[in-house]
Simulated assay, not measured.
Amino acid sequence: MIYFEDLQVGSETYFGSYDVTREEVLEFARKYDPQPFHLSDEAAAKTHFGRLAASGWHTTAMTMAVIARYVVEDEQAGLGSPGIDELRWLKPVYPGDTLHVRGKIIETRPSQSKPDIGSFRTETTVTNQDDVPVMRFTSIVLIRRRPTED
């Protein structure tokens, strides 16, 4: 189990990859972001996207799927997140892309009010198969501290 005390500022993690499919782009858009350039090749061709593009929120959800799988498999003592800062969609994501998710710990902080919890901030960068950054954000994560023997 990975606890707060195991984290080091500056350490980097490769969380994994995600293959973006046309079917999933369309399904997500129909349910959550039904803008024409997420639903139609013809409509997307008339925009700066040039072709069908994934919703930024879909890119965020695919990224979360990669991170969550990693955290569960790596058995971290995570307690969720109170939020993210500075979310930026840098480039379009298209069906056929493969997303790669990496994180770098930029800060750790023990809780002042809850001695059994700490938090850390991670700068997460998502790149496509050409190593071009498509999304970046900073997340705040809560994590348990290592239990002490009484």
Rank of each mutant, 00 (worst) to 15 (best):
A65T: 11
N128K: 01
P92Q: 01
L39W: 10
N128H: 02
W89E: 00
L26Y: 07
E24M: 04
V66Q: 11
G16F: 07
D6Y: 10
H100Y: 11
V66Y: 12
R51T: 09
Q129A: 10
F4N: 02
D19H: 15
F4W: 06
V25E: 06
E123W: 12
E42F: 08
G80A: 11
T127L: 01
A68R: 15
S113C: 12
L7K: 12
Q8P: 01
R22G: 14
E107G: 00
V20A: 07
P92K: 01
A53M: 03
D97E: 12
P34E: 03
G96K: 04
K91P: 09
I67K: 12
D19E: 15
Y14A: 03
V141M: 02
V101I: 09
T125P: 06
H48N: 06
L52C: 05
H58E: 01
S11G: 07
Y70L: 13
H48W: 11
V72D: 13
E12A: 08
E42H: 11
E149I: 05
V126L: 01
I117Y: 02
V141G: 02
L7P: 10
A77R: 13
A65V: 13
R121P: 05
V134F: 01
P82Y: 15
R145A: 02
R109M: 09
G80W: 03
V72A: 08
T125D: 04
A53N: 04
Y32C: 07
M62A: 10
D97N: 14
E42K: 11
L87I: 14
Q35H: 14
P115G: 04
D41Q: 04
